[in-house]
């Protein structure tokens, strides 16, 4: 099972505990992790299911290549991190 972790910053807005998922792509992993959690989903994706512009996703320490179709592949033990890009002051 892969594990999806969300940035700790999200926890102050909405429950975002890590989730174990069975998935072979990062898109499937996110969909599974966000299934039934529409409020959490709205913080990560817009209303059309697109990753928000300043959200960054890592698989096993490497940033994903395909932000549009989220096709990057996972292994059984992948650690997926949903993080925020830093900006502003």
């Amino acid at each position: 099972m892969a594990t999806v972790h969300f940035t700790s910053h999200l926890q102050s807005f909405v429950n975002s505990a890590p989730v174990e998922v069975a998935a072979t792509t990062v898109g499937a992993a996110l969909n599974s992790a966000l299934d039934g959690k529409e409020q959490l989903r709205s913080y990560v994706m817009d209303e059309h299911g697109r990753l928000r512009r300043h959200i960054m996703v890592f698989i096993d320490g490497k940033i994903i290549d395909d932000r549009v179709n989220l096709s990057d592949s996972l292994t059984d033990t992948s650690e997926v991190y949903v993080m925020q890009a830093l900006s502003g002051g």
Partner: peptide, 28 residues
């Protein structure tokens, strides 16, 4: 929230507590 999009909260007790409600979203 920038990174995490626009969100709307409502309070029914003059700010003692807040609950997140829906935001307007554009249809498919």
């Amino acid at each position: 929230l920038g990174h995490f999009g626009a969100h709307l909260h409502r309070s029914c007790d003059r700010g003692a507590s807040w609950t997140e409600v829906a935001v307007p979203t554009f249809p498919d």
